[in-house]
Design a protein around this nucleic acid. Structure first.
Length: 899
RNA sequence: GGACGAUUAGCUCAGUUGGUUAGAGCGUUCGAUUCACAUUCGAAAGGUCCUCGGUUCGAAUCCGAGAUCGUCCACCA
């Protein structure tokens, strides 16, 4: 017999082990079943499982379990990410701290440092693996991948080479976001802007006044830029030169006219520093101006700064201002100027734009064939397009659907503003740029060419470069990647997993990495394989604390750690609490009471099962002997029939909800069906005269439907009551909807529920002690037979000792007026559920419908509407009209029969 | 500066294409409890659906304007 309360600790690990051992997670690439694939967004190999992972795992597990039960060949590929910059800086910091080595890169050298990082990652990956299991994730561990696997490295190199050969990857001096602290570039998306109040200085510069918050960059400035239409400066022509007294003596400056200048800002004139500012760089490129480096890669001023050379920015700034002031060039200081300071999202250090030789992906060059997907290809075969255009097309044409839809706009907007992607990083941990140099010769490829003296590029690739290949690089056969004679195309063609499981079905991830990752997967995968990476993108929101704040380690009191929650409340409860009430793309709040609420639900289900099993036992029936889906049709009570009927609707709704990714709504439906109907009414009514077969069979179906949401408890309960030939729930077939609804039984059941509820309320209203058995008269004309047949239930659930049901209004009036001492309560049903109430509501509905019909008829009678509105709309209105008329007719008939 | 989203009970949120008396969970109040479950059961209180205007027979829902909050993007020398 089951314990009195569900104890997840005693169940979860055992169940997970059973699933894993059984091979239920493994997908078969030779199967003829329809594939359903999810690539797990790989958690950072260094990390601990947090709520962001937990919600991702819960959602994906629901998708995959539903697909598996529906008989699809379901594959969920797990893995971990090497998280280049994050990991390298974690390990470096650790070495600095533990071994007191201030510069581990210099001291240990590349080989040793990389070895240490790899070692560290290997340890952390084990932690992540076990944490993913704790959530109940039914992923195929035999296919686990890691972004630094050799096979994936081969894919990275092949794609790099392909892009290089296509002219999509180039090396160039471009202005990049340089992080002086981590000594590497970061991509535009990794830069954050923080508001900062700093003094804003206005200086005299020749005949002009220029304003700046960063005087330390101004040493080399020799161009003043203004808008060509600015009337204040009409007398200066583009190309004019003049002499100006400046920080370290006089400089010769040139006037430049450029449209990008905002005339309303400051004085409308600025000097530019092309080496250290994106906008200035662009202006300089447009006009072919000289660029000069002022600040070194270590963040210190260079020779050009004269007496200030070697100083850090913080040191130099006040001194420079002081000097300019003493020269009489400072005209104004605004102390309250708010400006946005660029900082690195990773290290948090400030970003110093610098010009560097870097590798880039050209997103505008039109050299790529239209993707092979059906919709986007229509009529465009053979056309060449840019990576940007590909990314746009596959979403625009509906090959890829984003849920929620509104993120389409954000996505398109991002593409419109996308600049070339800087893919090289000056760190050691990651996929090394597969390029070799010997003097001026360049060779691109995974291996060094024949001959001596070739040296590989020291840089590594942006971590998102390898992540962008994730949906398919994880599906190539690793053995094939060892054969260097095969092309990428051959490898893909000969990899059974890729052939069977790609494109993947759904990519589920947080909306915060739509740009970082999702967009880049679309870009890279569609380019490299000719296939879209996934058909649907499901974006979940962030989990916040109870105050709507981001959970962070700095506020431990609001932190919820899944690893604390799981032993306490169970993985099932955690899963429900994160999914019900969360709609895609929107943030949601999580706190312990919420989780406890779902723990209670799990326990309710547990106890309902316990009750059912006890009924079996006392009836001497072994539940295993009860066949599934074969309810005894004789002697079905109203409750049995109503349950059967409602069950049909539930199956249909849950199937539909899961198919269309409406997880929250569907979860809520299941919750309320189980608690509010099955437990509160059906089980209560079955007490005393239970139909065991119905009881068991309905509960089994409930377990099946709930399994994707709360796999552990359902599997455990299933093992207690499954039919003897059935296997585990995880692979149990999903029920089908057989469409036979019993509306009469549902209506009668509802009347019974209404009557009992009314009695309870009546008792409370009249202050009758709940313990006391009462005598009751129910007066009804329409439902006398029904209520009489259910008298036993009414008596038991309403604590009524003596029940009289009469259709005679006089009886009740007499009883009430005579204050018959032996009658406690009188319940006239006329105002509750009786014909009078029905009549009233029907009359109201009729009036509404009539005016509705009138409205539509007026619309359709309007010539302008019929002529100008889209035909579909007119048709829809017509359909609605006939529907309403039909309904009106029905109501008319019913009303006639009532009176 | 541009875009997107939110605003419904004390709190957290549902509310399908406009249609009975706007719902749930938590919390609160009152009551119950050997009979599956106190991780329970019954009942109650609690709402100007942000504001104004419009469309409609009918608006929480559609349209317009505004307010407040939040997020993303761009970025100003």
């Amino acid at each position: 017999m089951l314990e009195k309360a569900y104890d997840p600790k005693a169940v979860e690990d055992r169940i997970y082990e059973m699933w894993e051992k059984s091979g239920a997670f493994k997908a078969d690439n030779k199967s003829t079943k329809e594939p359903f694939t999810i690539s797990m967004p790989p958690p950072n190999a260094t990390g601990q499982l947090h709520l962001g992972h937990a919600v991702m795992l819960a959602l994906e597990d629901i998708f995959i379990r539903f697909a598996r039960m529906q008989g699809k060949e379901a594959l969920w590929v797990p893995g971990t990410d090497h998280a280049a910059i994050a990991t390298e800086s974690v390990v470096i910091r650790q070495i600095q701290k533990d071994e007191k080595i201030p510069d581990p890169r210099a001291k240990l050298g590349r080989e040793e440092l990389v070895r240490r990082i790899a070692e560290f990652v290997e340890k952390s990956r084990g932690v992540i693996r076990s944490q993913v299991r704790k959530m109940g994730s039914s992923c195929d561990w035999s296919r686990e991948r890691y972004t630094m696997d050799n096979a994936l490295n081969r894919c990275v190199n092949e794609v790099f080479k392909k892009m290089y050969d296509d002219g999509l990857i180039y090396r160039g001096h471009r202005i990049v976001n340089w992080d002086p602290k981590l000594q590497t570039t970061v991509s535009d998306d990794e830069v954050e802007y923080k508001e900062e109040i700093s003094p804003f200085y206005t200086f005299k510069y020749g005949p002009f006044e220029i304003a700046t918050a960063r005087p330390e960059t101004k040493f080399g400035d020799k161009y003043v830029v203004m808008h060509p239409d600015d009337e204040r400066y009409m007398k200066y022509k583009h190309g004019d030169t003049f002499e100006a007294e400046w920080i370290n003596g006089p400089v010769r400056a040139t006037v430049i006219k450029d449209d990008s200048i905002d005339m309303a800002f400051g004085t409308g004139v600025m000097t530019i520093t092309p080496w250290h500012d994106h906008t200035d760089f662009e202006i300089a490129e447009r006009h072919g101006l000289e660029k000069e480096q002022i600040i070194g890669f270590d963040g210190k001023l260079l020779e050009v700064a004269g007496e200030f050379a070697g100083m850090s920015i913080e040191e130099a700034r006040p001194l420079i201002v002081e000097k300019l002031k003493s020269k009489g060039l400072l005209t104004k200081v605004d102390e309250n100027y708010v400006h946005n300071k660029a900082v690195s999202q990773r290290g948090g250090g400030s970003i110093e734009p610098q010009i560097r030789l870097q590798w880039f992906i050209d997103v505008n060059k039109e050299v790529v064939k239209w993707p092979a997907s059906a919709k986007a290809t229509a009529g465009k075969k053979g056309q060449l397009m840019s990576l940007k255009q590909i990314m746009h097309a596959v979403v625009h044409h509906g090959d890829i659907a984003i849920i929620p839809e509104r993120f389409d706009k954000t996505y398109f907007h991002w593409i419109d503003n996308l600049r070339d992607w800087c893919i090289s990083r000056q760190i050691w941990w990651g996929h090394r740029v597969p390029v070799w140099y010997k003097g001026d010769d360049i060779h691109v490829g995974a291996q060094a060419p024949e001959g001596k003296g070739w040296e590989q590029d020291p840089d590594t690739l942006d971590t998102w470069f390898s992540s962008a290949l994730w949906t398919w690089s994880t599906l190539v056969d690793p053995k094939l990647t060892e054969d260097m004679s095969l092309s990428l195309e051959d490898i893909l063609k000969q990899s059974p997993d890729f052939q069977k499981f790609h494109p993947t079905s759904v990519m589920e991830t947080g909306y915060d990495i739509l740009f970082f990752w999702v967009a880049r997967m679309i870009l890279m995968t569609t380019y490299a394989t000719g296939q879209i990476p996934f058909k649907t993108v499901y974006l979940h929101g962030l989990i916040r604390d109870r105050n709507g704040q981001k959970m962070s380690k700095s506020k431990p009191e609001t932190m919820i750690d899944p690893l604390d929650i799981i032993p306490k409340y169970g993985a099932d409860a955690l899963r429900l609490s994160m999914i019900v009430g969360q709609s895609p793309g929107a943030d949601s709040r999580l706190y312990e009471e919420k989780i406890a609420g779902y723990r209670n639900f799990i326990n309710k289900l547990w106890n309902a099962s316990r009750f059912v099993l006890m009924q079996c036992e006392s009836a001497g029936i072994d539940p295993a002997e009860i066949e599934n889906g074969k309810w005894k049709m004789e002697n079905l009570s109203i409750a049995d029939r109503a349950l059967q009927s409602k069950m049909q609707t539930l199956v249909a709704e849950v199937s539909d909800g899961l198919t269309n990714y409406r997880l929250s709504e569907t979860g809520e439906k299941l919750y309320s069906f189980v608690w509010d109907f099955y437990c509160d009414w059906y089980l209560e009514l079955s007490k005393g005269n239970a139909n065991i077969a119905v009881l068991v069979d309905a509960l089994r179906t409930i377990l099946v439907l709930l399994h994707p949401y709360c796999p552990f408890v359902t599997e455990e309960l299933w093992s207690q009551m499954k039919p003897k030939n059935a296997g585990m729930l995880i692979t149990h077939p999903w029920p089908t909807f057989n469409a036979s609804r019993d509306e009469e039984a549902e209506a009668q059941m509802q009347i019974l529920i209404d009557v009992i509820t009314a009695i309870r309320k009546l008792r409370t209203d009249q202050g009758v002690e709940p313990k006391k058995d009462v005598s009751l008269i129910i007066q009804t004309s329409a439902h006398k037979d029904l209520l009489e047949s259910q008298a036993e239930h009414i008596k038991r659930l309403g604590r009524v000792e003596d029940l009289t049901i009469t259709s005679d209004k006089k009886t009740i009036d007499d009883a009430a007026s005579a204050f018959l001492p032996d009658i406690d309560l009188y319940l006239p049903l006329a105002g509750l559920i009786d014909t009078e109430k029905e009549k009233a509501s029907l009359t109201k509905e009729k009036a509404q419908l009539e005016s509705y019909v009138k409205g539509i008829e007026a619309k359709l009678g309007n010539k302008q509407f019929v002529d100008k509105a889209p035909p579909a709309l007119v048709e829809e209105q017509k359909a609605r009209l006939s529907e309403a008329k039909e309904k009106l007719e029905k109501i008319g008939k019913r009303l006639a029969s009532l009176s």
